[in-house]
Simulated scan of single mutants.
Amino acid sequence: MSLDTMKTVKNCPKNEQEWNQRAELKNCSQFHQSCTDKSNFRYHCLPNTVLQTLVEVCAPMIHASEYCCEFNSQGALVQRNYKADCRNHSQPCTNSYPSTEIFRYQECYAMNSQVAVKVGVGVDKSKNKGSGIGFGFVIPLGILIFCSILLISGWIYIRKRSNDNQHDSRHNTDEHMDETTIKLNPEDDKFYKINLW
């Protein structure tokens, strides 16, 4: 059910008031789900490491400790990001905090350097449905591979033609230049073959 509620956003709330306003707009209690108690199915705004963006989503709340939270769209769950330790932030996270209070730790939105999540950057999910590998990566890679194959094939073709032409011209020259017939004595009717090569 969480994936059905997921929407990419350009930024996440910066304080409790903004969080509560966005949570009210999202209205997670309207969604019928069976994964948790209705009161635990809550609004979240979190980095999504799969889509490399920020997402608003309704999901079961977790208690995080020492690490920033993230939404894993492949597992459809809120989880700790063990690559994002928040204990040394300017506003360090507590030993245990509810995932619905991540707005208190704004650096968590910007520190996911392994996925280049930045505050203020987002993608519209409706334009990017799929397995998590965007067309922005697959299409240029395919074009690069195609052009490389084309370039290598062209180079091989030109080299082959060049070698064939050199061989043909040498072979033709050899046929015409191997022997020559000359008359040594003008008064004599005898011709002699001389090898020039």
Rank of each mutant, 00 (worst) to 15 (best):
E175P: 00
R161G: 06
V55G: 01
S96C: 05
F191R: 06
A23Y: 06
Y192K: 09
W19E: 06
D124T: 11
N81S: 13
A59I: 09
K10C: 09
Q52V: 00
R161N: 11
M177Q: 10
K14V: 00
C45W: 00
K83G: 12
S131T: 15
N128T: 12
T181E: 08
P47Q: 11
T180D: 04
I149G: 06
N72Y: 03
V55Y: 00
D4I: 15
I182V: 15
D85I: 10
G134K: 08
T53C: 03
K183G: 04
Q74K: 11
H44Q: 00
N165R: 06
I194C: 08
V119F: 15
N48M: 05
S73D: 05
N20F: 02
F31H: 04
I102E: 14
P60R: 10
Y105A: 08
N11T: 15
L196A: 07
I145Y: 05
C68T: 07
Q21S: 13
V115C: 03
N128R: 11
S73F: 02
N195S: 13
R22H: 09
K183Y: 02
S148R: 04
N195D: 13
R42C: 13
Q79V: 15
L3W: 00
K14P: 00
R159E: 13
H171G: 02
T49V: 09
K118W: 11
L144S: 07
A23M: 03
S126W: 07
K14Y: 02
D168G: 05
R104F: 07
D174T: 09
K193P: 03
N128W: 14
N20P: 02
V55E: 01
F191D: 03
V138H: 00
Y97Q: 02
C68W: 04
L54Y: 03
Q91N: 15
Q52D: 03
I62V: 15
I149V: 11
S96R: 10
A64C: 12
R87I: 05
E101N: 12
N81H: 04
Q74Y: 11
S99Y: 04
V119P: 00
G134A: 08
E179S: 12
